[in-house]
Each structure stands twice: as C-alpha cells, then as structure tokens.
Design a protein around this nucleic acid. Structure first.
Lengths: 380, 380
DNA sequence: GTGAAAGCGCTAACAA
DNA sequence: TTGTTAGCGCTTTCAC
C-alpha cells in the first residue's frame, strides 16, 4: 500500500521512526511523539498531520526503545514445568487472553521441575525487563531467586503452588476442599475403605502422622499434600479410620512405580472398594491396570480421579472426576499480576496486601465410575 | 549472598549496570563492557577484576539496552491458533527447547484462526524487534502481513502450513504420503469402500474433481487438503473408484456437523466398511458415535485416524492412527529459523534457498481398530 | 590495552 | 501549544 512513487525509499533501511514521521509532518520529534503517544498537548491540526504521516509511512512505535525509557516492556513471563502439559498450556491460554486485553505479551520458559532451570529463567526474564512474572515454582521452600525478582520491583504471582507465606501472591485450586468433597461422595455411596493414590515431590517427602483420633500431614501447602489433607479430613469427619496401607504416595519422578502402587493396593489382604487417584497420571495408571486385569468398574472397584482429561468421557464407564480449570487459574493469576503492575508501587503507606491467596473452586463431575456399596460385602 | 555490610546499598535502586561494575573495578565503562561481553581486548588482570566486581554486584546485562544497540533481541515469536491445543503446545515445547540452546526466548500469540489477530500479532512482534517468527498462518493466500515481516529483514518459518510458494520456508508433515499409506493399509486388509471424514477451512472450500480415471482436489497445499489427496492417490493406485458420497468435508468452525457427517456415512445405502478420520476431532466424533450406537469396532466398522492422542490407547479397541510429531515439527521449524537468523543476510550473491520446504515424516501405528474384510460381505 | 564519546529510538523535563 | 535537550544501558568506533 505505501505507494509513494515520487520519493526514493531507502529500501534496505529499517522501519520508520518518530524522526521520519516528524520530518514528513513538518514538526519536531517531540511533537510527533506526543501526537502519536497521546500524551501531552497538541493542536488538532498538528495531530492530524502527524497521524497522516505515520499512516503513510507505516510507522509503528519501537517497543524496545520505549521499554528502555519507560521501564515498561509490555511483556510478562510465565515459568512452568512443561508447556506441552495440558494443565500448563490451558493456564497459558488464560494468561495470554488477559495479557492481550492489557496490551501485553507472554514469554514462556520451561523448567522440567529443575530448580536450576527455574533460577536461570528468573534471571533471564529479569534481564528482559518483564513487567511481571507468573510462576509455578519447583520448590515452595527455595525461593531466593523469586525474592530477587520481587526485590527488583517486578511483581510475581505463583500459580498452582502456595507461596503466600513468603509474601508472594498465589493462585491455587481448592485442592483440600475439592478432595474432601469427593471422598465425602464416596463415603455417601457406602465406601469405607477408600485408597488414596497420589504423587509427591521427591525432594519434599511428606511426613504423614496418623494418630488415634487425628491424622495429619506435615509440610507446606502444595496441591499434592493438600489433597492428602482433604482425604484425611473427609475420613475424620465421617468417623472413619485412617489406614496407612490405603495411602500410596509415589515420587513424581518415578512414573514406573505408579502402576506398582495400584497393583499393591489391589493385592491387599483387605482391599479397598474405591480408588481415589489424586492426579491425572495416577488416574490413567489405575484405569489402565483395572482394564488389563478385567476388573469391572464400578462393579468390582470404584474409581474417582482428580483432574479432567478428554479420555475420561470416552472410555466406558466414564470416569467421575474433580475438575480444576487451569484456564481460569491462568486468567486469575494474570488478572492479579496486572493489578499489581498497575498499582502505584503499593509499598508506601497503606498496608499493602502481600502474599494474597486466591482460591479457584473445583467442581465435582459425577459420571459412572463410582458404585454403591450396600453392606460389608466381603468375598463377593 | 551479596552481603556487603560496609557499603550502603541504595536499596530501591534498580539492578546494577556496566557503569557500576566499572566503578567498582576501577576501570572505564568501555573496558568493563569489553571484559564482560568477551569482545575486544583486555588484559588478564583487568578481566579478573571486572569479572569479580560483576559477580559481587550480581550484575546481569540488560537485554533491552543490548537489543537497542545490536538489533538482536534474543526473542522469537510463535503465532498459532491456540496454544492450549495439544498440537501447538507440543510444537511450542520443541521450539522452546531449541531456543534455549540458542540463548533465545519465545513469545506466543494466539490467533483463534482469525486473520486480523494474526496481522496484529505480526505487527506487535515486529515492534518488539523479534529475531524471527514461527507462524501457523490462518490463510495460505493472504500473507501480505507475513511478507512485511520478512521485508523488515526478520526471518519467518511457516509451521504445518505450506507457504513456500510465497518464498517463505515451511515445515510440514508428509500429510499426503502418511494418509496414502494408511489408506493403502486399509485396502490391504480387504476394504474397498473407505470413507474419508475430514475438516476444511471455511474460507477456502476445496474443489473436488472426480473424473472417470482420475480424481483430484484443487487448491493450495494444506494439511486438510493434502490428506484428501493422499486418500485419492491411494484409491487410484489400487484401482478403486472414488465415490463422492464417501467423502465428507466439514467446515472447521462447525463442530456440530462432525457427528452428522459420521451418521450420514453410516446411513448410506451401501455403507463403507472403514472410516478414515483425518483429524483428531473427527476421530473423536466417530469413535463416540460408534460407541453410542453399539457398533462394534472393528467387527462392524473399522476406524483409522490421523493424529495420536492419549485416549486412543485407553479405549477398547485401541485406535490405529497416523502420527505426526508436533514436537519434532516445532524443533525443525526452530532449527531452520535460527539457521536463517545466523546466516549473514543470505540475500547478496548466492542464490539463497528461499521457500525451502522441510517435510517431517509421519508414522503409522497399527493397533486394533482395523479389521479384515474377507469377501463382499453384504448383509453380515 | 584502555578511555572518551557518540548514538540506537523513545520519552519527559524544561524552555520558549 | 511546540521545540530543545538530556538521557535510559549498552556497544562500538576512534584516539590515546
């Protein structure tokens, strides 16, 4: 379109800048910049001339130079374990959607759950002057590198991991309540022996304490641990005993042991009547093993999982699950982040909300994988 | 760690810069920059002093300023329809992995298959001075905005869509060959009436020409059309007739019509013995409908799909599919992009490879959803 | 081998 | 209302 036959276009020259626009409009650089940027004053006439010149030249402001001056890059960072994971890519979409509305863009970096990669990512993103950071931290204890980011005045929101004790805003699902609710459902259907199968971070093995009247799990708030807590809470609330043998916590980096854990549960002298699988990997392992062994769901074994995946409605029976919306979590985290970015450095004066915790509700989707237990139905 | 009790740290001040490092090391800015950047000359001793000072201060070069000077941002853009889609998020991971090796980062932007969004994305990324762009273009005809990017000297690689005719490098799967191979497999198992169920872009409806001896589909190279071509080619090669009623092309933006298309195929007077579903959505629709109607796979109907998804191995029977590795495609696209970025402006002299086309092979995964047809087995 | 200085494109004081 | 000017942090001639 920029067909300007008379003028010789330098062709190989880069994109036009304010100076070019100013020259064409016959005004100074500052005036052109003001007219274009929409700040300061400029007369109607000059405004039009400049706008026209910019249009003709196909002028587009250089964000890099703008960042240099203003310190605002209109870029945020998203640091997660693996963007190809369905949870993170959905969250990413939520983040992108909010960012688009805010005129911002998102740089993604993967950590593969390695602290060193996370530290590198934080450093790199800081050097690019990102306006903010959304992160799913590998560790909830080791967060010096995250503190360095906030220390540099860059807002951070933690996604799916609780870091609010460290004064960092977090957006998490109501893992404990969602799980408790699901277990409650199982109990309501007559199940007394309910197995819990979940993953845990290898570096932070949970300390499970099972007392006569109370059971608890020590350690920080993390989805994997909070779900165990929800399980314990629901059993306690119903006056059911907590049995150690019904709880399997498999290190996240040893996927091969998931199937073993399910098999061990089935091999128990007094096996459970229902399996609660606390994450999608475990749900898949459990479903696969039950299928292979020809164990009828829910006839011989009930199954209830955390996290919804496409396949849970394609297999027969359809699997009942607790769903968390990764998309909504991403949106919420981004919304919170941009609020902090916009906030005029909430440090001075008002006791600013540091370490705010936003909880996204989960939903229970009842399908067909949970059966009714009538009486103590030992030995079929 | 930076425990420097004696010196008063301005605290609220931003990150240290070359000037600070230079001051601490007792040299000039230029010298410090040289020592840190590893270019130009500097004595052993100065080098050490500067490095030490940088370490103490926790100095990290400001990429924004560096970009401004050098024009290299160490950021590339990835423009796709929807990052939460499994194909794109896997491709994204491949891109990120290569980018990491190259010291680069990736900004993702979603288009939802809207040309206007794609145009905006291209403009925005250009204004951020990205070093290159990987894009899955909405349209293979309308690419003025992409030409604008290459015109600005920024390399572009097209992913999953052929744009090499426009002089833009492309990385695509061997859709035609992969499909032909799958259809060939069906024919080898005795199938003569094979249905093709696929999606097409609503704006670019394909012109299907079915002649006596030859059938073809007009239009550009696109995964959706190339798969149809593979289907036609395999039938022709086997001397089988192409029948219009066995080909269903559903507009991509009308998901509701997918199930209708499958149902229509089943309702045919002389129904097919096998269904080839050319994308994951269609495979899902077909599998769901067959399950609901209690039609046995592969007993009463064989099913073979394009694209592998988790669920295809969890359902019974497991679905045979043609797989394309989105991850590999992403890696290949990124590798090609960085090669072009590194190339010293391949315009001058040598006839540079413009519009290079890289084809990533697909694989056929035989599972249990395809049955053997003995004889003309009409009416069971 | 090192330092002084210019400038990438933009914005924000200040002056006119 | 508009123009002049001074940088943001870095790299890169060019003298010394």
């Amino acid at each position: 379109m920029p067909t300007e036959p008379g003028r010789r276009e330098p062709a190989k020259r880069s994109r036009p800048n304010v100076k070019d626009v100013a020259a064409r409009a016959g005004v100074s650089r500052a005036t052109a910049a003001r007219a274009l940027g929409g700040y300061g004053y400029s007369s109607q006439e000059v405004m039009e001339r400049v706008t026209e010149a910019a249009r003709e030249l196909g002028y587009e402001p250089n964000r890099v130079a703008r960042t240099m001056r203003s310190g605002k890059s209109d870029i945020i960072g998203f640091v997660c374990a693996d963007i190809s994971d369905a949870f993170f890519s959905s969250a990413m979409r939520g983040i992108c959607d909010v960012a688009l509305d805010e005129g911002s863009k998102v740089i993604v970096m993967n950590t593969d759950d390695q602290l060193s990669q996370e530290q590198d990512a934080a450093r790199v993103l800081l050097s690019h002057e990102v306006d903010g950071l959304i992160i799913t931290p590998v560790s909830v204890r080791e967060h010096a590198h995250i503190d360095a980011v906030t220390g540099a005045g860059v807002p951070v929101v933690s996604l799916d991991r609780q870091l609010s004790d460290a004064g960092i805003d977090s957006v998490v699902a109501d893992n404990e309540a969602g799980t408790a609710n699901a277990i409650h459902h199982l109990i309501g259907r007559g199940h007394h022996r309910i197995a819990y199968l979940g993953s845990v971070q290898p570096e932070e093995p949970p300390a499970l304490r099972i007392g006569k009247s109370r059971a608890s799990v020590a350690g920080p708030s993390r989805p994997s641990l909070d779900r165990v807590r929800g399980y314990l809470r629901a059993l306690s609330a119903a006056g059911l005993p907590v049995e150690r043998e019904l709880i399997a916590l498999v290190p996240h980096d040893e996927p091969g042991r998931r199937t073993d854990a399910v098999a061990a549960m089935l091999a128990l002298g007094d096996p459970p009547s229902a399996l609660f699988t606390a994450d999608s990997y475990m749900t898949k392992s459990a479903f696969t093993l039950l299928s292979e062994r020809g164990i009828a769901i829910p006839g011989e074994m009930s199954l209830l999982g955390f996290d919804d995946l496409e396949w849970t409605t394609l297999v027969r029976p359809r699997i009942s699950v607790v769903v968390q919306s990764a998309y909504d979590m991403g949106r919420a985290a981004a919304a919170q982040l941009f609020a902090k970015i916009a906030a005029p450095e909430s440090g001075a004066g008002s006791a600013s909300v540091r370490g705010q915790r936003t909880v996204i509700p989960t939903r229970f989707l009842e399908r067909e994988s949970v059966g009714l237990v009538a009486e103590p139905v030992r030995g079929r």
